[in-house]
């Protein structure tokens, strides 16, 4: 157990180090922050923004009441989720493809490490990096919420972002598996994007399919469960689905590396 933790930490730290030392990761983070910051401003402060709309409807005396912070959080997290769908494949694409290209996979595979430790360490590393990308945005949101009266419940805020993190981790786990399939990072990114897009909209496909088959497919949708989280609904089935995606990603990665060794010519 001690060596397991030690190995896990070693892989984790190396993975993290490679993100913080690579210009590519910084570019991704900066673009992500730029776009999500823009979303934040547009959503809150622009003439079409949520505040302007609510005050307009107030002036018209429509008599509807809005929970502005709640509406904002829901919309904003939705936007972040969609944006992440583009960004996450770029974070996960290099996880194994790069190791294969550099030949370092051979080092890992000939070291006393199990495939599981390597996969888990890598996933933790990239999830940490993704969380680090979210932290500044959470700060901005909290500043906006501090103006809210009555105070916005922190639990909703945390639940929503927890959902975003789970969505990110599931996507990254699947992306990691796809990355382990080839030594081309571009191919991995494109394929991951395709798979994530499919899982994102699978509920739309499912409604078109009749019967229990359609229903069961619909449950696989990332979007439905993510939306629950952003709306402040904690549903264990969502949690289980996300965790299943993560475990599946890890399992498939470990298996694919094993298969690779058998087939390698």
């Amino acid at each position: 157990m001690k060596t397991f933790i030690g190995n896990l930490l070693a892989i984790y730290r190396r993975e993290l180090q490679s993100y913080f030392n690579s210009p590519f990761a910084y570019v991704i983070a900066v673009v992500f922050w730029l776009i999500s910051g823009l979303f934040l401003i547009v959503l809150l402060l622009s003439p079409q923004g949520i505040i302007a709309q609510v005050s307009a409807s107030d002036q018209l005396g429509l008599g509807q009441t809005y929970d502005v912070p709640y509406e904002f959080l829901k919309l904003y997290l939705g936007l972040l989720g969609s944006l992440s769908m583009f960004v996450l494949p770029m974070l996960s694409m290099g996880l194994y493809a790069e190791e294969r290209k550099q030949g370092t996979l051979e080092l890992l595979a000939t070291s006393p490490l199990t495939n599981w430790v390597v996969a888990l360490g890598k996933l933790l590393g990239v999830v940490t990096f993704y969380s680090a990308m979210l932290v500044p945005l959470m700060g901005l949101e909290l500043i906006a919420f501090s103006a809210s009266d009555p105070a916005f419940p922190l639990s909703l805020f945390l639940l929503g972002h927890g959902g975003l993190l789970l969505l990110g981790a599931s996507t990254l786990a699947l992306g990691m598996f796809i990355s382990s399939l080839s030594d081309s990072t571009v191919l991995a990114a494109v394929m991951t994007f395709g798979v994530v897009l499919l899982l994102w909209v699978v509920d739309a496909i499912a409604t078109a399919l009749p019967g229990p088959f359609g229903q069961s497919i619909g449950h696989l949708s990332l979007l439905t469960h993510f939306t629950d989280f952003t709306e402040g609904i904690f549903d264990t089935s969502g949690l289980i689905l996300f965790l299943s995606y993560i475990v599946l990603g890890l399992y498939l990665t470990a298996q694919s590396i094993d298969t690779l060794r058998f087939q390698r010519s």
């Binding site: 070693a10 180090q17 030392n21 550099q102 030949g103 370092t104 051979e106 000939t110 070291s111 006393p112």
Partner: peptide
């Protein structure tokens, strides 16, 4: 694996690490 040191045809190196930190990493996983 613990008792063997292996240099494959292309040296397995992480370009974004320093020599020392890379060797520390290898020592650790070995």
């Amino acid at each position: 694996r613990q008792r063997i040191g292996y240099l494959p045809e292309t040296p397995p190196l992480y370009p974004e690490m320093t020599v020392e930190s890379f060797l520390h990493f290898v020592a650790r996983i070995k």
